[in-house]
Structures are given as C-alpha cells and as structure tokens.
C-alpha cells in the first residue's frame, strides 16, 4: 500500500510563510463524489511523487458556480465566483491546476472578468509538463500495448481546444490509442454538461451516455480513458448498462499514470 497522501492547505502554507508553486483546485466532484475522489487521490500521488509544491484550499474552496451558470442562474454563479476570487486573491494565487474541465473552463475564462486572473491548466496539461521537465517518468508497464480510447470532455476539447495533452500522455504509456468515430472537435458529449448531471434527461429514445458508450465500444477498447469526473461517471454508467464493466475499465488519465507507476 502506498504511503499517506501529503495534502497541504493554502492556510497551513500561508501560516508558515510558504507559497506553493501551484494551487490544486479539487472541485466538488473531486471532493465529494466517491468515484472522483479516486482521481483526486491518484493525481495527488503523482504530485507527491514528483515533489511538486502545491496546496489545496480545502474547506475554503467552494463550487466555481459552473453548474449554476449553465442552468441560467448568473446571479448564483457570480456570487460563487466573487467569493472564490476573494479567497484566491488573498492567498496571492498565480497558477491553478484542476482535474475538472468544468472548473478549468470557468476559472480560466469566466473568472478574469470578475477580477480573478490566474494561469489555469488542466491536470493533463500539467502532467505533460512534469513529464517534459523530467519530474515524472513514465513507462508503460501494465498498459503496454493495451487498447485505450480517449473520450474528449466538451469543456476541455471544443470549449478550450485541449486535444493533444491527454493523448500524448496515453501514447507515452506505450498503449495503443484508438479513436472513436466522433473525436476531438467533433467529439460527442457524454451527456453531463450544462447542468444535465443534476437532472433527469428530457424525453427521448436513448440516454446520451449510452450513445457515447456505444461509440466507445465500437473501438473494442480495454480501457476508456477520460479527463473529467463527470464524463467518467457517465461513461462508467454507460459501460454498466452494456454489462461490460468486467472487461472494460473507465479510468482518468491521472489514474492511468499513477497505476503505471505503481503509486
């Protein structure tokens, strides 16, 4: 079993007069959702392994407001944003990394207009940079030659044009990256965005996550990789609905890397 996680908070760091290199924005899913918490931990293991100086906000973190904004509640969104910005500015945050594309998009694009100016990166971009700087090493190990298909999260891909960082990481695992029929710019949504995660779908003839899972299954993958906690849930449910959970795993890129390194 790996050693204890080392998760300093901003408050602790600040109290001891230190400033971390980067703030890890955990997000609501990453903090509370059982499946997403595993992704959070996997990412922290890598950060610890690479000796990255980071901190989290912990109990001072609050929802970015993304689901409220996409549901039409601009008021609630801005209240959340202004509160979070106050906290982050007080800690003089310069750089933020997050494993949630929704947080990523909101922090990066919608906070600057409200006074929150940070360099915001998605964890796949951050990991790729660690790799390029030689701070982590990756050998395929258990993933060598495995068929992995990657699902583009809308808020990472189309919304912010990040397509290659996650793919580069998968290739570095010596895995066989196979693309779905709709990928990159034309990637199909998992069905969770725009606050859909929190409501029942409208009447139709299929659930969106099932449609997307079918596209993934067409590639005959051993693993479906994702870069978003919500996509992860949707795809996991989709795989279950096809009764394929025994043979196909849905994993975040951070989990792939942590597993490959036996962390």
């Amino acid at each position: 079993m790996a050693s204890e996680l080392n998760v300093p908070t901003m408050a602790e760091m600040f109290a001891s007069g230190q400033k971390p290199e980067v703030l890890f924005w955990v997000g609501c899913a990453g903090s509370f959702d059982d499946r997403a918490k595993k992704i959070t931990k996997a990412f922290v293991k890598i950060l610890n392994q690479a000796n990255v100086s980071f901190a989290v906000l912990g109990t001072e973190e609050s929802c970015t407001g993304d689901p409220a904004k996409r549901a039409g509640n601009e008021f609630l969104f801005q209240m959340q944003a202004v509160t979070n910005i106050e906290v982050m500015n007080a800690y003089e945050v310069k750089k933020v990394v997050t494993a949630c594309p929704h947080c990523f998009n909101t922090l990066k694009n919608e906070y600057p207009g409200l006074g929150g100016n940070y360099e915001v990166v998605h964890h796949t971009q951050f990991l790729k940079q660690l790799l390029e700087e030689g701070r982590i090493t990756m050998e395929g190990g258990s993933y060598k030659g495995k068929r992995i298909t990657y699902h583009d999260p809308c808020y990472l891909g189309r919304a912010n044009n990040v397509y290659e960082a996650p793919r580069d990481l998968i290739r570095k695992l010596d895995a066989e990256l196979v693309e779905m029929k709709s990928c990159k710019q034309r990637g199909l949504c998992c069905g969770a965005g725009g606050a859909q995660m929190f409501k029942e779908p409208e009447k139709g003839d299929k659930d969106i996550n099932v449609e997307r899972t079918e596209q993934a299954l067409e590639t005959k993958p051993e693993i479906i990789a994702a870069g978003c906690p919500f996509c992860n849930t949707m795809m996991t449910d989709g795989v279950k609905s096809k009764e394929k959970e025994a043979s196909i795993a849905v994993l975040d890129i951070a989990e792939l890397i942590a597993n490959a390194q036996d962390l």
């Binding site: 809308c154 189309r158 710019q185 199909l188 949504c189 969770a192 965005g193 725009g194 606050a195 859909q196």
Partner: peptide
C-alpha cells in the same frame, strides 16, 4: 435538454 456541449457551434 441542452448539454452546452458546443457541438452545434463547432
């Protein structure tokens, strides 16, 4: 019913 996925915009 919209997921705000931007597929239409793209």
């Amino acid at each position: 019913a919209c997921t705000s996925c931007n597929a239409c915009v793209e």
